[in-house]
Deep mutational scan, measured.
Amino acid sequence: SEEELEEFAKEVLRRGITIIVNGIRITEVEIFVKVLREILEKR
């Protein structure tokens, strides 16, 4: 749901943790923004 997305976004921003994806360091915020864009483009 959109509320869950908002909560996830807030949690990500609070933690600001960097994770490893395919050997490249990407912040969770960047991943969230990318996923959010993909979701919005599909609408």
Rank of each mutant, 00 (worst) to 15 (best):
L36V: 03
N22D: 08
V33A: 02
I20F: 09
K10R: 15
I19A: 01
R15C: 09
V21Y: 15
L36M: 06
R15M: 08
K34Y: 03
E11C: 10
I26A: 01
E6L: 15
L36Y: 02
I17S: 04
E3K: 14
L40I: 08
N22K: 07
F32V: 05
R43W: 15
V21R: 02
V29F: 12
L5K: 02
N22W: 09
S1N: 10
T18G: 06
V33P: 00
E7C: 14
G23I: 13
N22G: 09
V21T: 02
S1D: 07
K10F: 09
I24W: 10
R14E: 09
R25N: 09
I31T: 10
V35S: 03
T27R: 04
E11F: 04
E6V: 15
G16S: 08
A9C: 09
E4L: 13
E6W: 15
V29L: 14
L40R: 03
E30Q: 10
L5Q: 04
R37Q: 09
G16P: 08
R37V: 07
V33I: 14
T18Q: 14
I31N: 07
E4C: 09
T18S: 10
E30W: 10
I31Y: 08
L40G: 01
T18R: 14
F8R: 03
I39T: 05
N22M: 06
E38R: 04
E6C: 14
E4F: 14
V21D: 00
N22Y: 05
R37W: 10
E6K: 14
K10P: 03
E28I: 05
R43V: 12
E6I: 15
I24H: 11
I26T: 04
I19Q: 00
E2D: 14
V29K: 03
V21E: 01
E3H: 12
R37A: 04
F8S: 01
F8A: 02
E3T: 13
L36I: 08
L13C: 00
R15W: 13
L36E: 01
A9K: 07
V21M: 09
E4T: 10
E7L: 12
L36A: 00
I19D: 00
V29E: 03
R25L: 15
K34G: 04
F32S: 01
G23D: 03
L13Y: 05
I26S: 03
I24F: 09
E7I: 09
R15Q: 11
E7S: 09
V12W: 10
R43C: 15
E7W: 12
I39S: 03
G16Y: 15
K10V: 07
I39R: 03
E2T: 14
E41P: 03
N22E: 04
L5C: 13
E38Y: 13
L13I: 12
I24G: 02
R14V: 04
E28C: 06
T18L: 14
V29W: 15
E7N: 12
I31H: 14
R25E: 11
L5G: 02
N22C: 12
R15E: 06
K42D: 11
K10N: 06
R25M: 10
E11K: 09
